[in-house]
């Protein structure tokens, strides 16, 4: 099991209260794969430094989790398939 940090930028047109169930839905893969979601920190709407898909805002969310590498790979794949996800980044903070 490895420590991961995941950041997602979600579509700003999503409703505020629809955000956490959506993220929770994504994280189901981690829970089913024996991983552990440690912290979900939703920053809320934030201005992007440049436009992504013609959108100048995004809903940022940072998730700390512990999981097997292939589970995280699958999570990232599913995130990228979803239309309301603008961008994702997965990092391993302990490699620094």
């Amino acid at each position: 099991m490895r420590q991961y940090e995941l950041m997602v930028i979600l579509d700003p047109e999503l409703e505020e209260r629809a955000v956490s169930p959506l993220i929770d839905g994504f994280l189901k893969v981690v829970r089913d794969g024996g991983g552990n979601v440690e912290k979900v920190d939703t920053w809320g709407r934030r201005r992007l430094a440049y436009e992504i898909n013609k959108k100048s805002e995004g809903i940022y969310s940072v998730v700390d989790l512990k999981a097997q590498p292939d589970v995280v790979k699958e999570l990232d794949r599913q995130l990228n398939l979803n239309e309301s996800v603008l961008r994702t980044k997965v990092l391993r903070p302990d490699t620094h």
Partner: peptide, 18 residues
């Protein structure tokens, strides 16, 4: 080097401008 990597990561996530 760490700063440079952090800035580049940050740019990818639109937190800092290119």
């Amino acid at each position: 080097r760490d700063v440079a990597t952090a800035v580049k990561n940050s740019r990818e996530m639109a937190l800092l401008p290119y």
